[in-house]
């Protein structure tokens, strides 16, 4: 798939924003690390709103005909894309009301404050799920058609959100042990889930050029694509990463997105790192940005089969295994004719 910046930003920023809002609410519910002061709660809620808004605005850049965008709220009964929009729009009033209420009443633990923040959290989480399902429901793209996609969206949203919360606490001072540990834990969970995903998409799918053309008993080879120059289909779907580049980017995801922030926050558990803490969420966001680029660039739509491309993930037997195989031994045992 063509990695479009608009959609990368949408899922990256809004996912992180919703993760932040959800964890902020949780934090104040259970007073993890003492909970956040009203002013900080309002600022962090505002932070979440800004992130979500950056995502939502950039998503409209993806539309070829944005004047009809309002219609996207109409098909929530069948379309996950529509549900995403509806949940995100319902999220706004609760999040804004909570930030305002907390700011003006100086009360984070009153019934109304908790109600508003938890409602915003739940709606944000519902939006992340819809966002994941937008991709996971497509049977045409094997790398997306898996429950690991919404699971990853959650894990990454929480990881970035937790890193922001921990950094905020470290920078402003206060008991940061619980929040930093939580961020480290969530970052590690996200890393493991992402590793499972990368392992899983390496396996081949059942759809091949044979099932695509119906000639199941022989080889099928493209002779001619039938068009002079590129088409919408080749532009939108033919994007391909070579293996080395994909591997390097995956390593970058783990180093920048997970190892870096984890190391910083773990260091803080020993000795406060002060303002440096801000780099933790920045690195996490950058790493997840690379992850999101890969998420699109590695996805292979089945229509590529018609253009003669086999799934990039078709496994080949490694050379060292070939050499080991005994080649002189006949496959069928010989019997002495006696």
């Amino acid at each position: 798939m063509k990695p479009s910046l608009a959609v990368i930003f949408l899922t990256l920023f809004s996912g992180s924003g919703f993760g932040l809002v959800a964890l902020l609410a949780l934090d104040n519910d259970f007073r993890i690390g003492g909970g956040f002061a009203p002013i900080m709660t309002a600022i962090l809620m505002g932070c979440g709103l800004v992130l979500v808004t950056i995502g939502m605005i950039s998503s409209t850049a993806h539309l070829a005909n944005p004047k009809n965008a309002w219609r996207a709220f109409t098909r929530w009964r069948s379309s996950w894309l529509s549900r995403e929009g509806v949940f995100a729009m319902v999220f706004y009033p609760f999040a804004i009301a909570d930030a305002g209420w907390v700011f003006f009443t100086d009360d984070t633990h009153g019934a109304l404050a908790l109600l508003l923040s938890n409602a915003a959290a739940v709606l944000g989480l519902a939006t992340i799920f819809s966002q994941g399902m937008i991709y996971a429901c497509l049977r045409t793209i094997r790398q997306w058609h898996t429950p690991l996609v919404p699971a990853n969206f959650y894990a990454l949203g929480f990881a970035v959100g937790a890193a922001i919360l921990a950094a905020a606490r470290i920078v402003t001072g206060g008991p940061d042990r619980a929040l930093a540990s939580m961020a480290v834990g969530l970052l590690l969970i996200a890393a493991v889930l992402k590793a499972i995903y990368y392992f899983w998409i390496g396996k081949p799918s059942g759809t091949t050029i044979q099932t695509a053309t119906g000639f199941n008993r022989g080889t099928v080879r493209l002779l001619d694509q039938g068009h002079t120059f590129g088409t919408f289909l080749t532009r939108e779907f033919s994007n391909c990463l070579n293996r080395t580049r994909a591997r390097r980017l995956r390593i970058a995801v783990f180093m920048v997105g997970f190892a870096g922030p984890v190391a910083l926050l773990a260091a803080d558990l020993q000795h406060s790192i002060g303002l440096w803490a801000i780099t933790a969420p920045v690195l996490a966001l950058l790493g997840v940005g690379i992850e999101r680029f890969l998420f699109f660039a590695e996805a292979q739509h089945v229509v590529n089969l018609y253009h003669g491309r086999m799934p990039a993930s078709l496994p080949k037997m490694p050379e060292f295994m070939r050499r080991k195989a005994p080649s002189a031994v006949p496959l069928v045992a010989h019997y002495d004719k006696g």
Binding site: L63, A64, N65, N68, R71, A72, R139, V303
Partner: peptide, 26 residues
């Protein structure tokens, strides 16, 4: 008159039957 040109349907089609018109955005 209703399409907003999000491309989502073309992702869902396995047969490459849908193409976005860049001029009309639909």
């Amino acid at each position: 008159d209703k399409c907003m040109g999000c491309n989502y349907c073309s992702w869902a089609c396995p047969y490459g039957a849908r193409e976005l018109d860049r001029e009309s955005g639909t």
